[in-house]
Design a protein around this nucleic acid. Structure first.
Lengths: 174, 174
DNA sequence: CTTTTGGGTCAGCCTTGTTGACATAGTTAG
DNA sequence: CTAACTATGTCAACAAGGCTGACCCAAAAG
């Protein structure tokens, strides 16, 4: 470890590697959201609407508080977009059968279609990246990304390797 | 909800794999920014200030328009945070020697220290994730992420494999 | 019956993006 | 030299999507 200067400095390489990771995450997230943002604008919706539609689609009949846990925003912030989505007929609310206080959320047909369209560009982007990178790289991507998310979010992915993770373990359920 | 449950459906697996990628990116980005956001709040700054400090630190004496190209925001949005950073003594502007219209940006000592503190939590997060995932996984992570970013951003990483990418190729430079 | 919980709502604030119009200094082309 | 273009800055107004704080109701839990 004595040869520095000539690009063989391990500390510098490490620092550079970390900064590249940081920047990759920044640019990837920004580009990743741009296409859906453009579609949303046509419907006078924003990114927050997409998130709600996405996770309600992913967890049919999810309760409001479970959705809040996933999104990690305040109920006032959620309320703003959720009520628009309900009013515009993309989401319906059912009174909880076991707990009558709950408003379980579900996409309408219109909502399902909207979700499909919005997420399609993102799925295509990932499909292309996965295909070009190869199966082994995808596994590495997953490992690194899992190391970056905080524990609460990591649990979402923990046991959901091949069971589809539809509801794997979560759902407070009264 | 018919069946196909038994994990043998390749189309379902693919769909699931793509959605996991989408979600990993969402949660990773959110958690990744949270620590720096908290520090920024103490200085009455926001995430936009961090971005400016970060990229000015990364590209000393960068011009305003080059910085705008990286951030992909309007000059009015940049101006708001940049002028605060200059006023507060985190960034200094030099008149361009070759082109007197340019205001080349550079971190002050105070700015360098601030950048270090802000980015440290993010570097640690990546360092931990990289270490736990292993070198091979890191390579896979890079491949997939590069596949997700759009072309303009991809060029940043293209030739900067082992030269540190300090200024590799960019810098419009009159 | 009282307390806690799930959910909703009003009101106001902040950051950070946007568009559009305009100003000014410096560079470059004719 | 003049005209045109370029780099940067600035004012004004707007929107999205976070936040806090206060308060409400209805249902569940004790």
């Amino acid at each position: 470890m004595s040869e520095a200067k000539t690009s063989a400095n391990p500390l510098f390489l490490r620092e550079e590697e970390l900064r590249q990771g940081i920047e990759l995450l920044f640019f990837a997230y920004r580009d990743f959201t741009s296409e859906a943002d453009a579609m949303l604008a046509k419907h006078k919706f924003g990114r927050a609407h997409h998130r709600v539609i996405y996770f309600v689609g992913r967890h049919p009949r999810i309760s409001v508080s479970d959705l809040l846990d996933i999104l990690a925003i305040t109920k006032q912030s959620l309320s703003r977009v959720l009520s628009q989505l309900v009013t515009d007929g993309f989401i319906i609310q059912h009174r909880g059968p076991r707990d009558g206080r709950q408003r379980l959320l579900e996409l309408t047909e219109k909502g399902v279609e909207m979700e499909r369209q919005l997420t399609e560009a993102q799925r295509r982007r990932f499909a292309r990246a996965y295909r070009e990178a190869g199966a082994e790289a995808v596994e590495g991507f997953r490992k690194v990304m899992l190391g970056i998310v905080d524990d609460p979010a990591r649990e979402r992915f923990a046991q959901s390797r091949r069971d589809g993770g539809r509801d794997g373990g979560r759902e407070r359920d009264q």
